[in-house]
Design a protein around this nucleic acid. Structure first.
Lengths: 199, 199
DNA sequence: CGGATCGTTGATCAACTTCAACGGTCGTGG
DNA sequence: CCACGACCGTTGAAGTTGATCAACGATCCG
């Protein structure tokens, strides 16, 4: 059983961002709840406030919004060692617009908004951890925004396969297509074109 | 002269996020340099590290990247009371991909990376300020990403005019078009269609 | 006054979508 | 354990959104 919730990756994830003593690390982690999420289970749903932020120990998640015509648009993926939630909902504690669903049976470390607030207040270094987390997520969103604005569907697809093949392998194609802002039919055609080129 | 660098909006901006005493506020602000930036002057350029983050006292800025074919893609706007920089460059202190240019003669409060690091270390509350800033900018990027993925060019245009008409009034149309991910010709046609509809 | 810059307009074009149909696979209930 | 249905990826034909190209007029600024 213990191998399913091996917390060393989580510890390393924290220590990479901010140097904590053993005691501090223990205290920090005590604010999180390890949680098993089964495939197809939702951790965030539209119109409900995202009460928690989730660090994926292992497993896979997908965050998406549903458009007027019922189409899904993937906003975030998360696999082992990534965070996921509806940040706009979580940060402002307002109703979510996103679904976040487990794509595989997963384990997460979950922290609730109130707990996180306490944690941030408790120690300057704990606050620093969340500051760094937020800064990096701003930077990565900026990179994605730039990619979406400057590249064609085909270029985005190539870039994604190259950078995130670990994710590509674990997610359905329609999810990747909607993440890249195209239909799954078109992605399928691109992929096919690619295969024939790769002599 | 003093009216040109009236700092009360900046003070309020800080106090809205984190409660500081008069003395703390003074200390906090002492890490910033008020700077006059003339129209068409650049504060960030590709291949140079974005050394600073800029709070706009008054004026207007535009951040954009240049694509392979020479097209400009606007990533950020900033007018009075907004922050601007190339965050991916600034946060990681790596070469920028963006230009950030003054669209009007402007005044900014500028803080350099090293100074900001000192400030964050100096006091828990100062760190909190930057944490909140980063969190909100993550949330707003998420909202923009969702808008780009879920809405048509026309819907994005409508939404922009409604939410950011203050910006729309001060920026050239081609900048807005590229922010919304369309050509300026197409934006012009949308705008025209709109005028004839508004019986 | 003259040149550069910006927005506009129309004609043509390409990227990507939509719709429809099909085959494979997976998981679930009988 | 089999059979059925749901879901997923694929393929092709036709349709649309938005891009490209080119030309023009207005405005601003030096």
């Amino acid at each position: 059983m213990s191998f399913m919730t091996d917390l060393t990756p989580f510890k390393n994830h924290i220590l990479k961002k901010v140097p904590l003593t053993e005691a501090e690390l223990t205290e920090f982690m005590s604010f999180f709840t390890p949680l098993r999420i089964k495939k197809r289970q939702f951790v965030v749903q539209p119109n409900f406030v995202a009460k928690a932020r989730n660090y994926v120990i292992h497993g896979a998640f997908r965050g998406y919004v549903v458009g007027n015509a019922g189409e899904e648009h993937t906003i975030q993926f998360a696999i082992d060692d990534w965070w996921i939630s509806d940040y706009n909902s979580y940060i402002f504690q307002q109703p979510a617009t996103m679904f976040v669903v487990a794509v595989e049976d997963s384990w997460v470390m979950q922290i609730e908004y109130e707990k996180e607030a306490q944690l941030k207040a408790l120690h300057h270094k704990y606050e620093t951890f969340f500051r760094i987390t937020a800064e990096r997520s701003t930077a990565s969103m900026q990179r994605r925004l730039i990619a979406n604005l400057t590249k064609t569907a085909e270029e985005r697809f190539d870039e994604f396969e190259e950078k995130y093949h670990l994710i590509a392998e674990r997610m359905p194609q329609y999810a990747i297509a909607s993440y890249l802002g195209m239909t799954s039919e078109y992605l399928s055609k691109l992929r096919n074109k690619r295969l024939s080129k790769k002599s």
